[in-house]
Amino acid sequence: MMLFRALLVVILVALSVYSAVVVANHGLNLLPVFFGDMAEMAWPGQFNFDFMGFLVLSAVWTAWRHQFSPLGLALAVVAFFGGMMFLTIYLLVVSYQVKGDIKALLLGQARALA
């Protein structure tokens, strides 16, 4: 679990630094660029469309893990728009909440106990 948590921290720090540089150079104008690349039907758009699939899976898993409760649905929205920045923090926090129990981490407390 410590290696997993270390990986999450490395990803979070690297992504934060990279994002800060991109925002400093290009501003927060992500959505027109993201969807514009997809509209062009070229490789950058294909990558964005593929990535959006991961965002959907992350959001659905987050909602499912919380049994589609209001909190789970709210977190799903954050997961979709927050991407890996959300997921690294979420998994770090939850990994400590479940005391490293991978079953509870993946399934949620209620399903892990069933």
Results as ranks from 00 to 15, higher is better:
H66V: 03
S58N: 14
K103F: 08
V10L: 09
Y96G: 12
L75P: 01
V33W: 12
S58D: 10
N29R: 05
D50H: 09
A110F: 01
A114T: 11
A110W: 13
K99T: 13
V77P: 01
V33P: 00
V60L: 12
A110P: 01
A59M: 10
L57R: 06
L55N: 15
V10T: 07
M1N: 01
P44R: 14
M38Y: 09
V9W: 05
Y96P: 02
V60R: 04
A39V: 07
N25M: 11
L12M: 11
V56F: 07
R111C: 12
M41Y: 09
A42V: 04
Q109R: 14
L91K: 04
L8W: 07
I102K: 02
F34K: 03
W43R: 11
W61A: 07
G53Y: 09
Q97I: 11
F49Y: 08
G108S: 08
L28E: 09
V22E: 09
A76M: 07
V77N: 06
V94M: 11
F49V: 09
V21M: 00
A74L: 09
V56P: 00
L15H: 12
G53E: 05
L3V: 03
A104L: 15
M52T: 10
L75I: 02
D101Q: 13
F4W: 05
L15P: 01
F47G: 08
G72D: 00
L31W: 12
L106K: 07
D50I: 14
F47D: 06
Q67I: 05
G27E: 03
A104E: 15
S16W: 00
L87T: 02
A14G: 13
F34W: 07
L73Q: 08
F34C: 03
M38D: 09
F4Q: 01
G108I: 12
L107A: 14
L91W: 05
R5T: 02
N48R: 15
R65N: 09
L73R: 10
V98A: 09
D37N: 15
H66G: 01
A59F: 06
F51W: 15
P44G: 11
D37Q: 12
A42L: 05
A112Y: 14
L105V: 10
L30E: 04
S69A: 08
K99A: 15
Q46L: 14
R5L: 06
L92A: 04
F35M: 11
V93Q: 13
